[in-house]
Design a protein around this nucleic acid. Structure first.
Lengths: 118, 118
DNA sequence: CTGTTGGTTAAGCATTTGCTTAACTATAGC
DNA sequence: GCTATAGTTAAGCAAATGCTTAACCAACAG
């Protein structure tokens, strides 16, 4: 089995790093150049560029070079895959807990009028 | 800056591996023992245990030992952190795109009755 | 008590990450 | 054309990952 989804792999891996998340947060409020994104981070520019490559490889971010500066922007809707996966898990286990709750309730009801005393 | 959140780090990192996601998927539909979880995976039991440790370290999963078997179950609501982060990003950039759209629209409207011809 | 099952611990190893520095290319401004 | 700026490429390195096998411990079953 093992739901093979390289998309989710790369997506979650990309989001697992605080520097990369910071970049995504920054880009959520508008496009920015490579050095704009690198400046606030405590690392060299090549390092920041590597992070951006990871984000782009995960499809979270798009980049376009204009003149000598490379501008990055959010790939709108890219996170929906991750969002869907998480949401699926949540609903799945919530429904399970609901069923469990209902079951326990029937046990209690039955106990109310047909209980063997402890 | 760099929104330091080890919780998100570990959470996303835990979800970045297909074997670990498979385990979470399996646990979403009910508790299971260590070997139950390891069996479908193409790896040794110690390897699977290491994955489970990662999941537990990320707070996604809880385990309790009864007799000689260790039972794992989903930590309900653990994913909400990740869900919140993703949702925040989505709404942020959607609002931005809305504003951008509105701005472009005003440009068009202005153009309609006050256009310098091309 | 003895064997089998379920799990744990430890050591070792190949690969991947996340950074660095240094050298280089390409554009923009004067 | 010179020079400063923005980015790219490459080499190198320490640490973290993801596995393996082997040895071990604990509990239940006969």
């Amino acid at each position: 089995m093992l739901n093979q989804q390289p998309g989710l792999d790369r997506m979650f891996h990309a989001l697992a790093d605080p520097a990369r998340r910071a970049m995504v947060e920054r880009l959520s409020s508008g496009p920015a150049s490579a050095s704009d994104l690198a400046r606030p981070l405590p690392m060299s520019l090549p390092a920041a560029l590597q992070h951006l490559q990871v984000l782009e490889g995960a499809g979270l971010v798009r980049s376009e070079k204009v003149g000598r500066v490379r501008n990055f922007s959010i790939e709108a809707g890219a996170l929906s895959l991750a969002e869907q996966w998480i949401h699926a898990r949540r609903t799945e286990w919530e429904r399970r807990l609901d069923r469990l709750g209902a079951y326990l309730e029937t046990l209690i009801r039955e106990g109310e009028h047909d209980a063997p005393d402890k």
